[in-house]
Amino acid sequence: MPSQSIINPLRLMPFAARVPKVTSELNWKDKLGAVKARLAINRHAYMVNAGLYAIGNPNKSSDVFVTSNYKLTFDILRKNLADFNAWMLVLDTKGVNVWCAAGKGTFGTDELVKRINKTFLTDIVSHRKLILPQLGAVGVAAHKVKEQTGFSVSYGPVRAEDIRAYVARGYKVTPTMRKVAFPLLERLKLVPVEIVLSYKYFFAGLLILMGLSGIHPDGYSIVSIAEKWVSVTLNTLVTFLAGTFFSPLLLPYIPFRSFSAKGLVVGLCSAVILLMFNALGGNFVENIAWVFLFGAISSFFAMNFTGASTYTSLSGVLKEMKIAIPIQITLAIVGLVLFTVAQLIN
């Protein structure tokens, strides 16, 4: 029936009445979903449909908050809009958070313009103002949105937790609301993802070292792998954690600015500490080999944390990598050669 009629009957309904309503309360499913996303479980399928949502009982003059369709982001926003009567305009960012999506352009001018038109926003609200998270500015050009849709973009605070204070202050941000920090808790939240995304390197490294530990003066022996596997696994695990956990944890307190140098420091310190307690488990040459390997591995994983950090630039990371990668490769090769030699003189 609808396809035949000249006027789509849906259009006879007030637009606002067709907007799905959401609550500001997160249930156990939302919370479990957040934990899973932090652990990188099914992370890229964690999204909501793009479009307009109502929170509370918004009317024509209610604020419009723009966000991404990554469900973790969507949930954080609606949680912070408790007691608000507002609209949430959700862009299709393919399930990626605002900042990263803005960097890729999916949280961008074109998508915003398209979404404004698709949701008939001009009919739903009488004002012409959108509130965007500040980090959306990486993908959205406010002046172009204004040109193309008539809506003026106000960049709100970086963090949704500050929205209440921002609105209470008459839609003004404080300098702190504008700045991206990287406090301990934020760093720790990113550690599980780093570990999950790099565990395959861990197992590859472990496999190589296990393989080498079978080398024996009289040939190759499974027995010596059986003898060594505990210490090899523990050492590899410690150096992996030095790069993926301890380096991010201690980030601001480790000397040097480059992440790979920070990782190198943490790796070498871990090796020296284990060495002092005679806990590396090998002969003299093997222990020296471990010091090299600890440096290489920890440095590599700490360098990978640049992507999770909130303050590294492309130019900086490129410069860092040019110096760090040859050093890491050299350390790794020296470490592996010494490790092999150590097995032969056993």
Partner: peptide, 21 residues
């Protein structure tokens, strides 16, 4: 991106070693 008078330029990209690799 948000400078209407195009006074600012910067080569943008991700400061992410894994992404660069």
């Amino acid at each position: 991106l948000n400078c209407a008078s195009e006074a600012l330029t910067v080569k943008t990209g991700v400061g992410c070693a894994a992404g660069i690799i």
